[in-house]
Simulated scan of single mutants.
Amino acid sequence: MKKLLSAITLVAVASTITPFSVQAAPLDGQQQQQVRELVRSTLVENPDILVEAISELRKRELQAQENAQKTSLEAKKDELFNTPGDPFIGNPKGKVAMVYFADYNCGHCKRQDLILEQMVKQHPDLKIIYKELPVLGGASREVAELVLAAHKNHPDVYQKLHQRLMSRPGRHDSTSIAAAFKAEGLDIETLKKKVDNNIKAKIDNNLRLASELGIRGTPATVFADEVLGGFTKADQLSEKIKSRLN
């Protein structure tokens, strides 16, 4: 460590001392080689310095990411929590609101969805806003558009349809999508005609919003001050909610 400090001191002195307002000359070749040898020998003798430096760099990167995410959350608050026409469950005037990005073909979303239903039962002052995020191919986009059309035209059926689609193991295709809608008494061909530019734009906006928040996949749950990427266990999510209710 003393050798490394000596090397750093040598560089600092050579580069910053400016007697009589004259810039010091740069290190010559011999001095540069001396600095390299001092740094190299110090790191070889003390490899923990590298580990410590990498750890500190990682901490700073994570802190920068967290700060950037909080800034983005503040800027996107209205889009997240006040977009007209977004489906939701729970208390419409809940003290705590949470946004949920999901894909009907995402296995972890199917597990997360059951936990969210549990959360609104446990926490009567909770509102969960659904944002379709079809990131797993064409069938995901197809079902997301049709679900939003169903919500717009048959809001009373939406939640049962959502649960039915999420409860199916594995991925959906056009056949399984049509079967789910039929089971809820909805004519899928009629709904296809209801998929307008507003619905398509809503999904495009969800995809953009997720990207701007640093969300790279589904599921993702978002509070006003925090993004939880990936599957979150019931006890962990419940604690997050409780801390915001208090």
Rank of each mutant, 00 (worst) to 15 (best):
Ala97Arg: 12
Val11Gln: 02
His154Phe: 14
Ser140Gly: 08
Ser6Pro: 01
Gly137Val: 14
Ser167Val: 04
Asn205Lys: 15
Gln122Val: 14
Glu184Lys: 08
Val143Tyr: 03
Thr175Tyr: 08
Gln32Ser: 09
Val13Asn: 13
Leu209Thr: 02
Val35Asp: 07
Gln31Arg: 13
Val157Arg: 15
Leu213Ala: 05
Lys95Tyr: 10
Leu148Glu: 04
Leu213Asn: 05
Gly214Leu: 04
Lys76Asn: 10
Glu212Arg: 09
Glu37Lys: 13
Leu38Met: 15
Gln23His: 10
Asn105Ser: 07
Ala97Val: 06
Gln32Val: 12
Arg60Cys: 01
Ile203Ser: 07
Leu148Tyr: 12
Lys194Gly: 05
Ile54Phe: 13
Lys194Cys: 01
Leu165Asn: 02
Val195Asn: 09
Val44Pro: 01
Asp125Arg: 06
Ile188Thr: 07
Glu189Lys: 12
Gly214Val: 04
Pro92Asn: 11
Val11Leu: 14
Leu5Asn: 13
Gln122Asp: 15
Val39Ile: 15
Ala234Val: 12
Phe231Leu: 12
Ala14Glu: 04
Glu226Thr: 14
Gly138Ala: 14
Thr83Asp: 02
Val157Ala: 12
Arg40Val: 05
Pro155Leu: 05
Lys110Met: 03
Lys192Tyr: 04
Gly217Ile: 01
Ile188Ala: 11
Gly214Trp: 10
Pro169His: 08
Ala210Gln: 09
Gln69Met: 14
Phe81Asn: 02
Asn105Val: 03
Gly90Arg: 03
Ile129Thr: 09
Leu245Asp: 11
Tyr104Gln: 01
Gly29Lys: 10
Arg58Asp: 11
Ser243Gln: 15
Gly85Asn: 11
Leu114Lys: 13
Ile177Tyr: 02
Leu73Thr: 08
Ile203Asp: 03
Gln23Leu: 11
Leu114Ala: 14
Glu145Ser: 07
Asp204Phe: 03
Val157Asp: 04
Gly217Lys: 01
Leu148Asn: 11
Thr42Arg: 02
Ala178Met: 03
Pro155Gln: 09
Asp156Ile: 06
Val99Lys: 00
Ala150Trp: 00
Met98Thr: 05
Arg60Pro: 02
Gln122Ile: 10
Glu145Val: 00
Ser167Thr: 05
Ala139Tyr: 05
Gln34Val: 11
Glu184Asn: 15
Ala149Lys: 00
Leu126Asn: 03
Val51Ile: 14
His108Glu: 03
Lys121His: 07
Glu56Ser: 14
Pro124Cys: 04
Gly107Cys: 07
Asp48Met: 12
Asn246Lys: 13
Asn205Gly: 05
Ala178Val: 02
Val147Tyr: 00
Val195Asp: 11
Glu239Leu: 11
Lys121Ile: 03
Asp86Thr: 13
Lys200Glu: 08
Met119His: 07
Gly94Asn: 10
Gln122Ala: 15
Thr42Ala: 15
Asp187Lys: 12
Leu4Trp: 06
Asp196Leu: 06
